[in-house]
């Protein structure tokens, strides 16, 4: 251990919800997108699931809203070290979309892509089982554009760069295909509890 002379840090608060190396951002919700925030109206938003599926399909805003509502209440964790506790997102569970397209048995991974062209790669297992959503509400209000509105992917058990803003689709694959940050040195899975920040972690 390399102790830093004179460094004490913040008061220690035992917080089982805080992954290693993270701090509580409190009321802040930093915006870290690397691209220009798109001017995307709900009427122009679509979400497609294709690749290794039996019935590829595209939903528009109204069609997506006919699926059963689902909410996430919990915490989110950004690779830049902030975590935000007790957030509330509303939308539709990704399982509802996947049930409609019927993934093939060979599908093991997915590339999520945005209306901006941003991409991120995930194991399919992280997108199923009630752990991922297409979210269009935050705290009961429409999701703000800078936070990914009209709709973003939400995978809160992984670092938040996996939760692609302005989500446009998922392509299911039988292999891992690194997305935007994954090609820029970030970890393939990004589990905050194992501190999988960079590709060597």
């Amino acid at each position: 251990m390399n102790v830093t002379r004179g460094f004490t840090g913040r008061p220690r608060v035992a917080d089982p919800g805080l992954p290693p190396g993270q701090y509580d951002a409190g009321d802040d919700w930093p915006v870290l997108s690397a691209e220009v925030t798109p001017d995307l109206a709900p009427a122009d938003w679509t979400f497609r699931v294709d690749g290794l599926v039996r019935a590829p399909r595209t939903w528009d805003w109204e069609e997506a809203h006919t699926l059963p509502e689902s909410a996430y209440e919990g915490d989110i964790h950004c690779v830049t070290s902030w975590s935000k506790f007790g957030v509330r997102f509303g939308g539709v569970c990704l399982d509802a979309f996947l049930a409609a397209v019927r993934p093939e048995a060979a599908a093991t991974h997915a590339v999520a892509y945005s209306h901006t062209g941003y991409t991120t790669s995930l194991p399919l297992a992280d997108l199923t089982g009630g752990r991922a959503w297409i979210a269009w509400e935050y705290d009961g209000e429409p999701l703000a554009a800078e936070h990914g509105g009209p709709a973003r992917l939400l995978v809160p058990h992984l670092y938040f760069w996996k939760s692609a803003k302005w989500i446009a689709g998922l392509r299911l694959l039988d292999h891992d295909e690194p997305g935007f940050w994954e090609q820029n040195g970030y970890h393939a899975r990004g589990n905050p509890w194992e501190e999988q920040r960079y590709s060597g972690d």
Binding site: E35, V36, Y113, S114, T116, G117, Y118, T119
Partner: peptide
Amino acid sequence: TFVPATRFAV
């Protein structure tokens, strides 16, 4: 390689 059919892909 999958490339999204969108304009921005820096």
